[in-house]
Design a binder for these strands. Structure first.
Lengths: 167, 167
DNA sequence: AGATGTATGTTATATTATAACAAGGAGATA
DNA sequence: TATCTCCTTGTTATAATATAACATACATCT
């Protein structure tokens, strides 16, 4: 049996994965986090996180508001923005500047400066580990500037869309 | 006479520099570019570029509109956004997502994926060379994703503001 | 029950950006 | 010179994103 060659993967998001498990694990991690930090995991918060987990598609605040309305929640802008702020603060969501949209964090738990790959065709977003991104934050902190945080978003094509475009 | 040790500089923007020369060189480069590409360097375009060059401060579209009004130009939103689009397309300006603001490009001429250092205290922005940024775009293009463009913005403190905060 | 703190709801408005169409002016050409 | 074409600028209206400020509800502790 041949050994697999080492490969670099942007993230599971662009690949098939066991989404049920993925969803459940994330939800459980969120629940656990809230219990540990004595934060309230309310129906509203839970619902919004669920939307974000649903299919890893980034969602705009106003899309989320529509979904909340459909689910019987109040749906004025502050409702969504507050929950999103909460999720971001707790490290379970990120904002994609490029899209003015929000995604569930792919590896929550520790605060980190996320790096995203955004497909310009299907708008799917993959969050990748800093170590795989070709970025060395220490190297970026220079004589003249103390780096505290980084916004890193790569725009391009995911495997599926590359294939389609090549046709 | 001792040799200076090699140092890394984020950019001239955070340092003293001959701003008159800097301003004039940029303006001339822009003029030259327009002649070569047979584009019209109109008073409006020239004025907006001048604002951006003024002191390297990122400017919001509506700030630019105010400045245009003060200079006797028309000042409805499309006026500013169109000129800014023009400058960006021609490679003489960039948009800073973090600030929803625009800056003159520090090394125009060739198209490039700029990397910025944004001081969270004074909002000054330095554009740095990719090679100094600790980022390897080739490394970022992986099996799963074809990188075409990158948005890279470091947030932190510039030398002056670090000093102030340490006090 | 009352006090406190946090979450949610509501109203209004700020900020950023674009669509769609009209008018003006420079240069080419008949 | 007239008019055609192309590009720039001007105008009106509105879309999209986000926050401020304040009111109400609800849980938990006492």
């Amino acid at each position: 049996m041949k050994k697999e060659p080492p490969q670099k993967y942007a993230s599971k998001i662009f690949k098939k994965h066991n989404h049920n498990a993925c969803f459940n694990d994330s939800m459980k991690a969120f629940q656990k986090h809230c219990v540990q930090k004595n934060l309230k995991l309310t129906p509203l918060r839970s619902k919004v996180f669920e939307f974000l987990l649903r299919d890893h598609q980034p969602l705009g605040a106003y899309q989320i508001l529509d979904m909340l309305r459909d689910s019987g929640f109040a749906s004025t802008p502050p409702i969504a923005y507050r929950v999103l702020d909460f999720l971001i603060e707790q490290g379970f969501a990120h904002k994609i500047k490029r899209l003015n949209a929000f995604v569930a964090c792919s590896h929550p738990g520790s605060t980190h400066s996320p790096t995203f790959m955004i497909c310009r065709k299907c708008d799917k977003v993959a969050e990748i580990d800093e170590k795989d991104s070709g970025i060395d934050l220490k190297k970026a902190t220079s004589f003249d500037f103390k780096v505290e945080e980084a916004v890193i978003e790569f725009i391009g094509l995911c495997t599926s869309c590359v294939t389609v475009e090549a046709t």
